[in-house]
């Protein structure tokens, strides 16, 4: 595990969209006690995640799986007395992890699906059957070419698939 000087990693986070408020944290634990995920698993604790980040534990934060466990309910962000945008900080950390190639398989599947079919989840037989039951029209294929142009313009494709052999 590499340890970075805490401030360098902190500055990297605060310079990113969503990460600006991380230094406000005074470790009161409001986020942890309001978090529905922390209630179900000991693997995830937003207070501890922020603490690790502020102490410069870059690898543990960006290579571990905890940042991906946040359910984005924003309870923590609503209640944080220091106005730390906890959920947004976690998004910033996820973006940093992706840029370094640390993408969980499920997210890679989403990205691949988006590039190939224009959808996060593929159109399945089950889904079509359900739609018919509810009287909804069948889904049309998305305009993949147009989407690819947009995603290329944002740099999405390069960021997600920069690892060799990962390209769809």
């Amino acid at each position: 595990m590499t340890e970075e000087k805490p401030l360098d990693f902190t500055r990297e986070i605060t310079s990113r969209l969503g990460g600006e408020t991380i230094t406000h944290c005074y470790q009161c634990g409001t986020c942890a006690s309001t978090c529905p995920v922390a209630r179900t698993t000991e693997r995830y604790n937003p207070r501890q995640l922020i603490r690790l980040a502020l102490l410069g534990q870059r690898d543990e934060v960006l290579k571990g799986d905890t940042i991906w466990l946040c359910a984005s309910c924003y309870n923590c962000q609503e209640r944080c007395p220091q106005k730390v945008e906890v959920a947004d900080v976690i998004y910033a950390l996820r973006n940093m992890a992706i840029r370094e190639g640390n993408v969980p398989a499920i997210y890679m599947e989403f990205a691949t699906g988006l590039m190939s079919e224009g959808r996060l989840a593929p159109i399945s037989k089950f889904l079509e059957k359900k739609r018919t039951e509810y009287g909804l029209p069948p889904l049309k294929p998305a305009n993949v070419e147009a989407l690819k142009i947009i995603l290329a313009a944002t740099g999405f494709d390069k960021i997600m698939f920069k690892k060799e052999g990962a390209s769809p």
Binding site: T34, N45, R47
Partner: peptide, 12 residues
Amino acid sequence: VEVEDELLRRLL
């Protein structure tokens, strides 16, 4: 009262 005991890292 819902609170995290930070020193135990346990939700109380």
